[in-house]
Nucleic acid binder design. Sequence first.
DNA 1: TCCGTTATGTTATAAAGTAACAATTGCTAT
DNA 2: ATAGCAATTGTTACTTTATAACATAACGGA
Lengths: 163, 163
Amino acid sequence: MDELAQSDPSPAAETRWALARAATLCEQRGTRLTDLRKRVLEIIWSSPVPLGAYAILDVLRDDGRQGAPPTVYRALDFLLEQGLIHRLATLNVFTGCRRPDSFHGGQFLICRDCGQVDELNNPTVEALLRAEAASRRFDALSQMIEVLGRCPECRREAESHAR
Amino acid sequence: MDELAQSDPSPAAETRWALARAATLCEQRGTRLTDLRKRVLEIIWSSPVPLGAYAILDVLRDDGRQGAPPTVYRALDFLLEQGLIHRLATLNVFTGCRRPDSFHGGQFLICRDCGQVDELNNPTVEALLRAEAASRRFDALSQMIEVLGRCPECRREAESHAR
DNA sequence: TCCGTTATGTTATAAAGTAACAATTGCTAT
DNA sequence: ATAGCAATTGTTACTTTATAACATAACGGA
Ligand SMILES: [Zn+2]
Ligand SMILES: [Zn+2]
Ligand SMILES: [Zn+2]
Ligand SMILES: [Zn+2]
């Protein structure tokens, strides 16, 4: 199980996996993945790049659903609490989490050019940071790592244009 | 030299050191640390907690100086470019850099309760992240690490109240 | 089915950041 | 000196992001 989290499935399959996983997790936890929350999660997973709250709101309105900013932000807060999405603070956007089973700090490679993100999972880095915090008697509650740069595609693109 | 960056001097001494260091660096680089930029840097260093752009603007206005948001943001942009300050994206605030001589990614412990921050300097973490990026053919330009939690003081405070 | 809780709708506003253009300042070359 | 150019700052207006406050609706257990 969870094979889809490891391989490289189609976006649609990935979205289906994420929604199913979310439903199971919320069931287990006794939290309610309502239609609205599920739809917001789906919108996030369906996008090739992370979306901002207002972009999500636009999609909801295209759905014909009524809504205002709080509608989206409340759904996002729920999804964040459940560890189903991450917020990329440097860009004010939200992206689906590929390992929602275990709460963890976000580790991201973010392409400055196309906006695509890649979620890392480096336990060594997480442990080192926890140790640093502990050595200073700091009670670490969450970690956020955002590496900005250029993804392989945009890199190639830029290099070909440079000639 | 730079002994103040290592020890634990008074806030005022720290501010003086930061301003002197900034002046030297800008001189060397041929960039202009104008009165406005110097004052913004001073405001940032003088505060026990990182300040947002509008809080800085309020201080400038208290100075009697005229100003609007762009005034502050432009000064902040300059200081960021020069590596004299960092921006904490999770809180939309700015804090002085303790090692402005070498450009580097930010590594911070941020207290959720009192807002105080502690800048780390863990080359291992930085190297690991660079390696992760490189292994994915990602061209890393900058890193930002923000660990949110509770500082020792607020931790003690909370524990004493818990009883 | 009643009631308390949780979730959503709605209006208004706060907070953060930027675009565009005008005025000023500082530097350089005559 | 001073004209001319570039960099900095002033100013107005606006966009984007996020939240407060209160009303309505849906859900779930007695
Ligand atoms: Zn994740
Ligand atoms: Zn890219
Ligand atoms: Zn620094
Ligand atoms: Zn604290």
